[in-house]
Nucleic acid binder design. Structure first.
Length: 825
RNA sequence: GCCCCUGUAGCCCAAUCGGUUAGAGGCACACGACUUAAAAUCGUGCCAGUGUGGGUUCAAGUCCCACCAGGGGUACCA
C-alpha cells in the first residue's frame, strides 16, 4: 500500500510508524509505575477493565483513548502515573460459549484475553504491563474468597431464604440487572420468582454511609450518577406505627412517611405474598378467596406488573386492626400493590392523601376521610391531595401544618408506646450466589453436624474443578454440585464427610476491589498491601461507561467502606473523580451484528491507523456525549496528523535553539495554545484541546510558508508543543515528530511546555463603547487600563459626544478593558 | 406518571464572569494555486442570530418561567 509513495519525504506512513515504535516503547517502558527510586508524586488513572468477549470494539477504542489522554497528560505534568489494565474474566458468556461448542470456558476466556491484549498493545494505551490481572486466575479469586470470609466474620455475609428472579427456561437464578422488562435477557422467557436459600452481602448496613459520603464526590462525579445512586438507595424518613389486631396477640407495625395523617386511615393493607397475609387469612372465612387471589398474583408476570395504571386488586381478610390514636376498627385487606419486602409489608391506608390508597378505596368502596385541608375533595376528583396544609378531623393535630403535625404525632406515639420515628431504604442486600460454573467458588463447607463452616484461610483458594468433567448445561443447580470429587470434603471442624457450597459468586464481587489488586497482582500473602494502597489510592481518575452508574460503583464503594472498617485502607471512597464516556453509535443506534451496522475497529485501524482513530474519537465531541461514527471523519483526522508531522520535518533550527529569540507573534500563539489545551484537558474538554492543537498547526504552517520561515526558533518551539500536546492523543505521530525534531524517545516523558505568562498578555485589546447597548465606537486600549481612565477615554470620543447629543448619562457601566456602556435613560 | 440531561451554520462542535457585530477547530461544499491531468498539498470562500414564547437586566446562547423536540433514569418504596 505504500510502494508508490514511500519515497516521498512528505508522505507520512502511519503503518510503518506503528511497526517502528512498538518494540522501542516495549524497551523503554515509559509508563512503568512505582519504581523504588521514583520520586514523582503519584496519580492513579483507572479504566474500567474489559470483559474478554472477543476482540476490542469501537466502544473500547473510545473509552481507552479518553483515559489515555488523562494518564499521558499527567505523565507530561511530572506525575508517577499508575495506569493499569486487566480482565473481568469470569461470567456467563464464557460459560455459554463453552456449552454451545462443548469447549472449556477457561480456554475460551484466555484466548480472548490474548487477542484483546495484542490489540491494546497496538492501540498504544499507556498501560503498565507489569500490573496485569485476570479475575479468573486462582491467584486473584483466592482473595475474593478471603474477603468473603472476612465479611462472614463480621456478619456481613449471610444466608437467607428469599424470593429471587428465576428463569424457568435457563433453570437459573438471575440478577436484577439480567431481567429486562420482565424477561430473561438471554432467552426472553418470562421471569418468575422462586424461594431459594442464597448468600447475601449486607450492604444495607452501609446505606447511610453510602448516601452521606457522596458529599465527598459532589463536583467530581457526574451529577447524574450521584442522583441515580441516591434514588437507588432511596432513604425515606417517617415513622413506624403499631396497630393492635383483633384476635391476634402480636400487633402489626406499619411504616409510613406521613404519620400526621393517621387520623385519616380508613383501612390497612398487607402484601398478599407476605407471611403476615397468609397468617391473617388462615382460618378466616375468606381464606379460600385469599388463596385464589394469591395464585392469581403469582401467575401475573413481571411484565404485567409493570404496566402503569393496572386497576387495583385485593381481597378482604375479614380481620380488623385498631387505630392507636382513636381506637377505630380498620378492615384489613391483602393486595399486590403493597410490597412484601419494603417497610414491614403492611401499610396504613389513607385514601384522601395517597393516590394508591385512593384508587384502592374507590375500587372497593372504602371510606375516604380528609385530614389535611385542601381546595379539592379527593373523593370527588379521584386525586389524592399530598400537599402541605392545616390538619382537620385530627384531634390534637387540628390546625397544625405538615411538619409540626408529623413531629407532634411521633411524640404522641412514642409517649403511648405505639410508635417511633423510623428510616427506610429501597436498597436491598446484595444477592451474590450464582448457580453457575465460571465464577469464584463460595468458600463454605456444609456439615450436617456443624452447619456452615468457613474454609480455613490456609486452604484457600478453593479452586474450580476441571470443567471438562462436568455438565455445564443449566439445570437449576450449580454444575459444581455434581462434581463429587470436588464437593465432598471432610468438615474442617469435626472431620465428618461434608459438602462444599456449590454456588459461585456474582462477578460483581470480582470488580468491587480489583483496583486494589493492581498494586501488586502477584502478592500471595494478602489481597493487597495497605501501605501501597494508602500511597496510591483513592483512584484519582476513573473512566468508564455510565452503564455501571449504580451496581459496580455502589458495590465498590461498599467494599471500600468495609475495608476501611477493617483497618486495611485509610480512605472511604475508592474513586475521587469519575468520567463517564458516551457510547459509540452507528447511524443513530447502538452497533450490533443483527442490526447490520457493526463497525470493526481492526478495519478502521487498517485503513486510517491507530492515531487517526484515537484522534477522531477524542475530537468528535465532549467525552460524555455519544459519538455517531457515521458523523466522524477518521480520514480528516489522518490528514491533520500528516499535516502536523510535516511541520516537524520543516523545522531547520538546531534542537538547542533558544526559543526566546524567536518570532513573538508565533510564540504568543504557541503559549496561548499550550495554556488553553492544558485547561481544556483538566476539565475533560479534550475535543477543545485538539482544536487548539490544530490552531497551532495552522499558525505554524503559515509562519513557515509566509512568515518568519522554517529556521526561526519559534517554529521549533511551536512544533515541539504540537508534538507534546498531540502525544496525549496520537502517540505514534507525536513520537515520529519528536524524532524528526532531533530528540530521543520517548516524547511521552517530555515535560509539558512551560507557559510564559508574559506571552499571554496582549499589548492592546479592543474596547467597545456602547450607548444604550448599541456600539458607537471601538478603541484600542492597554489591557491594564483602569476603570476611571477607560471611562474618561470613552466619554471623550467624538463619536460618543455626538451619540449623546448633549444628553446626561444616567449610568455608565465600565468593564475594563473590554467594554463601556453609557445608559441615557 | 415522576426525575434528570440536551437543543448554536448543511453536519459535528466552540464561546471562564451574563459583556464586542455568536466562531476556536473540523466535516461537507465551491473556487483558486501547483500539475499535461488527477491525487496529495497550499490557500480563499460559504452559511446561523442560538428549539418556541414570555421574563429579569444597562446587557442574555449563558439566569428565571412555560411550552415543544430528542435522549436517559425510574416505576405501586407507603
Amino acid at each position: 500500500m505504500t510502494e508508490n509513495t514511500a519515497a516521498d519525504p512528505n508522505f507520512y506512513d502511519v503503518h510503518a510508524a506503528q511497526e517502528k515504535w512498538l518494540p522501542i516503547w516495549d524497551d523503554i517502558a515509559p509508563f512503568r509505575s512505582g519504581r523504588a527510586d521514583d520520586t514523582r508524586p503519584t496519580k492513579y488513572v483507572l479504566d474500567m477493565f474489559p470483559y474478554p468477549s472477543g476482540d476490542l470494539h469501537m466502544g473500547h477504542a473510545e473509552a481507552y483513548a479518553l483515559g489515555d489522554v488523562i494518564a499521558r497528560y499527567w505523565v507530561h505534568q511530572g506525575f508517577n502515573v499508575m495506569h493499569p489494565i486487566g480482565w473481568d474474566a469470569f461470567g456467563l458468556p464464557a460459560e455459554n460459549a463453552a456449552i454451545k461448542r462443548g469447549a472449556n470456558p477457561q480456554t475460551w476466556t484466555y484466548e480472548n484475553i490474548a487477542v484483546q491484549k495484542a490489540s491494546m498493545r497496538r492501540y498504544a494505551c499507556s498501560f503498565d504491563w507489569d500490573r496485569v490481572l485476570n479475575t479468573c486466575d486462582p491467584e486473584y479469586y483466592k482473595w475474593n474468597q478471603w474477603l468473603f470470609l472476612k465479611m462472614y466474620e463480621r456478619g456481613l455475609a449471610y444466608r437467607k431464604d428469599s424470593a429471587v428472579n428465576w428463569c424457568p427456561s435457563c433453570q437459573t437464578v438471575l440478577a436484577n440487572e439480567q431481567v429486562v422488562g420482565g424477561l430473561c435477557e438471554r432467552c426472553d422467557s418470562q421471569v418468575t420468582k422462586k424461594k431459594l436459600n442464597q448468600w447475601y452481602f449486607k450492604i444495607t448496613d452501609y446505606a447511610d454511609r453510602l448516601l452521606d459520603d457522596m458529599k465527598q464526590l459532589e463536583g467530581a462525579w457526574p451529577e447524574k450518577v450521584l442522583l441515580m445512586q441516591r434514588n437507588w438507595i432511596g432513604r425515606s424518613k417517617g415513622a413506624e406505627v403499631v396497630f393492635d389486631i383483633e384476635g391476634r396477640d402480636e400487633p402489626v407495625t406499619v411504616y409510613t412517611t406521613r404519620p400526621d395523617t393517621l387520623f385519616g386511615a380508613t383501612f390497612m393493607v398487607v402484601a398478599v405474598d407476605s407471611d403476615l397475609a397468609a397468617e391473617l387469612a388462615a382460618g378466616s372465612d375468606t381464606e379460600a378467596d385469599f388463596n385464589t387471589y394469591l395464585e392469581q398474583v403469582k401467575a401475573t408476570s413481571e411484565m404485567d406488573r409493570l404496566s402503569t395504571d393496572r386497576p387495583k386488586t385485593g381481597v378482604f381478610l375479614n380481620r380488623y386492626a385498631i387505630n392507636p390514636v382513636n381506637g377505630e376498627r380498620l378492615p384489613i385487606w391483602a393486595s399486590d400493590y403493597v410490597l412484601a419486602d419494603y417497610g414491614t409489608g403492611a401499610i396504613m391506608a389513607v385514601p384522601a392523601h395517597d393516590q394508591r390508597d385512593l384508587d384502592f378505596a374507590k375500587t372497593f368502596d372504602l371510606p375516604i376521610r380528609v385530614v389535611v385541608e385542601s381546595e379539592t375533595d379527593p373523593a370527588v376528583t379521584g386525586e389524592a391531595t399530598a400537599d402541605d396544609g392545616a390538619h382537620v378531623n385530627s384531634g390534637p393535630l387540628d390546625g397544625l401544618g405538615k411538619v409540626e403535625a408529623i413531629s407532634a404525632m411521633i411524640d404522641s406515639l412514642v409517649a403511648d408506646g405505639k410508635g417511633k420515628s423510623a428510616t427506610n431504604y429501597r436498597l436491598r442486600d446484595w444477592l451474590i450466589s450464582r448457580q453457575r460454573f465460571w465464577g469464584t467458588p463460595i468458600p463454605i463447607i456444609h456439615c450436617e453436624a456443624c452447619g456452615e463452616v468457613p474454609v480455613p484461610l490456609d486452604q484457600l483458594p478453593v479452586e474450580l474443578p476441571d470443567a471438562s468433567t462436568l455438565d455445564l448445561s443449566p439445570k437449576g443447580t450449580s454444575p459444581l454440585g455434581a462434581a463429587d470429587q470436588w464437593a465432598v470434603v471432610p468438615c474442617p471442624s469435626c472431620g465428618a464427610s461434608a459438602r462444599r457450597d456449590a454456588d459461585t459468586m456474582d462477578t460483581f464481587v470480582d470488580s468491587s476491589w480489583y483496583y486494589l489488586r493492581y498494586l501488586n497482582p502477584q502478592l500471595d500473602t494478602a489481597p493487597f498491601e495497605p501501605a501501597e494502597a494508602n500511597k496510591w489510592l483513592p483512584v484519582d481518575q476513573y473512566v468508564g461507561g455510565v452503564t455501571h452508574a449504580i451496581l459496580h460503583l455502589l458495590y465498590s464503594r461498599f467494599f471500600t467502606k468495609v475495608l476501611n472498617d477493617m483497618g486495611m485502607v485509610d480512605f472511604n471512597e475508592p474513586f475521587t473523580r469519575l468520567l463517564n464516556q458516551g457510547m459509540v453509535l452507528m447511524d443513530g443506534s447502538a452497533m450490533s451484528k443483527s442490526r447490520g451496522n457493526l463497525v470493526k475497529l481492526s478495519e478502521e485501524i487498517d485503513s486510517n491507523g491507530v492515531d487517526a482513530i484515537r484522534l477522531a474519537m477524542v475530537f468528535a465531541g465532549p467525552p460524555e456525549d455519544d459519538i455517531d461514527w457515521a458523523e466522524v471523519s477518521p480520514g480528516g483526522a489522518k490528514k491533520f496528523l500528516a499535516r502536523a508531522w510535516r511541520l516537524a520535518g520543516d523545522v531547520t533550527s538546531p534542537a538547542d535553539a533558544d526559543a526566546s529569540t524567536g518570532d513573538v507573534a508565533l510564540r504568543k500563539v504557541t503559549h496561548k495554545v499550550v495554556a488553553d489545551s492544558q485547561l481544556a484537558i483538566e476539565t475533560y474538554r479534550f475535543n477543545v484541546a485538539v482544536a487548539r492543537a490544530m490552531e497551532l498547526v495552522n499558525a505554524t504552517r503559515k509562519a513557515i510558508d509566509s512568515g518568519c520561515g522554517p529556521s526561526d526558533p519559534a517554529v521549533r518551539e511551536a512544533a515541539e508543543a504540537v508534538a507534546i500536546i498531540l502525544s496525549c492523543v496520537a502517540p505514534y505521530t507525536a513520537e515520529e515528530m519528536w524524532e524528526r525534531l532531533g530528540h530521543a524517545p520517548a516524547v511521552a516523558l517530555a515535560p509539558w511546555p512551560t507557559v510564559d505568562s508574559k506571552l499571554l498578555v496582549e499589548d492592546e485589546v479592543e474596547c467597545v463603547v456602547q450607548v444604550n447597548g448599541k456600539i458607537k465606537e471601538r478603541l484600542q486600549v492597554s489591557p491594564s487600563i483602569s476603570q476611571a481612565d477607560l471611562e474618561a477615554l470613552a466619554m471623550g470620543q467624538s463619536a460618543i459626544v455626538d451619540a449623546l447629543a448633549g444628553a446626561t448619562p444616567k449610568t455608565v457601566i465600565v468593564r475594563a478593558p473590554k467594554l463601556v456602556n453609557i445608559v441615557v435613560a
